[in-house]
């Protein structure tokens, strides 16, 4: 399903070339459940954004579902994102002025789905995440767990094959985090490919496979069970500067 061939991403910072990602190759099969871990600045967000078709790699090829998407233009990439990928964000990114239903229906608006169909499908999606009774609530009236479930409903509304979750439990308490992970795994079992980026070893351990990144490269490939329980296999030292250098 996902084939990354010698992917690299290069940034110029003050005239100096900086590799956010270097010569990365990886294949992810359809239906897999993969966690991506690594310290801040290791390149995991860059990798996720490239897989999510939000960034184009500087070199290398990215074949998604048999199509090389690494050189598509902005407009075509929008189309790929719309139909193949569902995003789940740490900070939700729900529009405060829309209801839960409106937020879930939003991708269909841009895809030109007729409005009657949108209503029905969005309601179905909300029901599948257990929020049918919250359809008319605005994000500010929902708990954080409910918000993230709304986000998941939005992510699956276009029936993508790939779910990309960036720190999905980062803003959640333990129990709602657990709920969210169970929901994602349920979707995985139903056939969706699931990629999770996380700092949390408990999240990483749940995945079938774990890719460990450091300095823009995949340094380890583990199974979830192999992943250490208590601490991450890297230090949490330099966060904030690297966090900003990504932009």
């Amino acid at each position: 399903m996902i084939e990354l061939q010698h992917i690299a991403k290069l940034y110029e910072v003050g005239g100096q070339p900086i590799y956010a990602l270097r010569d990365t190759s990886e294949t992810i099969q359809s239906g897999e459940y993969v966690a991506i871990v690594g310290p801040s600045g290791s390149g995991k967000s860059t990798l996720l954004n490239i897989i999510g078709c939000l960034l184009r790699p500087s070199s290398g090829a990215y074949v998604l579902e048999g199509q090389d998407v690494s050189q598509l233009d902005d407009h075509a990439l929008s189309h790929v994102r719309q139909h193949n990928i569902g995003f789940i964000f740490q900070s939700f990114h729900l529009l405060p002025r829309l209801t839960a239903l409106g937020n879930v229906a939003l991708p269909m608006v841009f895809a030109g789905v007729p409005s009657a169909e949108r209503q029905a499908r969005a309601l179905d999606a909300l029901e599948s995440v257990g929020l049918a009774d919250r359809a008319q609530h605005r994000p500010s009236q929902l708990s954080v767990g409910q918000r993230q479930r709304t986000v998941i409903a939005r992510a699956i509304i276009m029936h993508p094959k790939l779910l990309l979750a960036d720190e999905p439990t980062g803003n959640l308490d333990t129990s709602s985090g657990q709920q969210v992970m169970e929901l994602l795994e349920l979707l995985n079992r139903q056939g969706l490919t699931l990629l999770v980026v996380s700092h949390d070893p408990n999240v990483a351990r749940r995945a079938k496979r774990v890719l460990v990144l450091a300095d823009g490269q995949i340094v380890k490939r583990l199974t979830g069970a192999e992943f250490p329980v208590s601490s991450m296999p890297f230090s949490q030292g330099k966060t904030s500067e690297d966090e900003t250098s990504r932009c």
């Binding site: 902005d74 995003f87 964000f89 990114h93 991708p107």
Partner: peptide, 16 residues
């Protein structure tokens, strides 16, 4: 800013 980012992520075209 972030709303525009979201809309782009969920597939809104630049023209939209």
């Amino acid at each position: 800013y972030s709303e525009i980012g979201l809309l782009r992520a969920i597939g809104a075209r630049p023209r939209q």
